[in-house]
Amino acid sequence: MTVVDLPARTHPDERTIADGNDQRKRRRRREYGLFALLVAPNLLVIAVFAYWPIIYNAFLSLTDWNMIAARPKFVGLANYGRTLTDPAFHKTLWITVVFTGLIVVGSLVIGLALAFLFNLPLKGRGAVRTIAFAPHILSGAAVATIWAFIFDPGYGLMRALIEPFGAEPPDWMNNSDWALPGLVIVYLWKNVGFAALIYLAGLQSLPKELDEAAAIDGASTWTRFRSIKLPLLAPITFFLLITTVIGTFQAFDVIAVMTGGGPGDATTTLSWSIYNEGFQAFNAGRAATLSIIMFVILLVVTTVQARVMERRVHYR
């Protein structure tokens, strides 16, 4: 998202009334004062609860602290050394990457397919689009609870769908092979409507001439999709890619309700292990270290986004 930098509008006080230097100065000071008054509460909250945490995390990550002892013990970079060489951390990172990868690919592919479907001249497509988008605004904890029941191997809806094919329904959430795919299904169900909505808006804003010209020249539907629509949708794909990565990295409610990082560590993502280290093991140093690692990873992602967006704007 680029910030369109428009000049501020001056209040016409200054233009309409010709007055002495003194009065203008006083007016300017009043304007400064009002600005400070209006902006201060927001800036204060942002400073304390968005920026300070980064500094605080950086400090805590250099300490060993159980949050009970009077003060944290300084241990230098020991937390980083231990975390980065810990096989459990490698597994956590791998699970996070797999989870994020599956959800990114799933949302983009299914979202694009749904957008094409909703763009066809079908009756009721608007209603279905709304239905598909609705889960996006529902509580993740509640959605996860519904799916916990759907996945119940005894009396869940999934059993009714799987059994007719002669297969045994898995115990999704208690089976380390099925828990992660189960979470991915839930997460996609909840969020794919968002990708579909964005893609649809993109499709509807594409220039029609190019596609029509290609159709007249005899290009097949597939060629038109691959060589015209897909490249034109690239900025939207890129936007969705970034927002999905950032969102999925921080996925928490669905995991907390459905698996609690388990069984074993089968669904322990980076976001879950931050919570686990901080609020279950009360290991502030480790939790802060993991937080800084997540911050750096996502900072790289957003920086890449900013760079690419900038280039796109320049070259257009």
Binding site: V3, W52, F295
Partner: peptide, 25 residues
């Protein structure tokens, strides 16, 4: 302008990263 970027920059801070420090604050 700098102040405006300071406000927007808050969007770059992932909420999950702030949990522990904010809890302590």
């Amino acid at each position: 302008k700098i102040l405006f970027f300071a406000v927007l920059g808050a969007m770059m801070v992932p909420g999950h990263v702030t949990l522990l420090p904010n809890y302590l604050t």
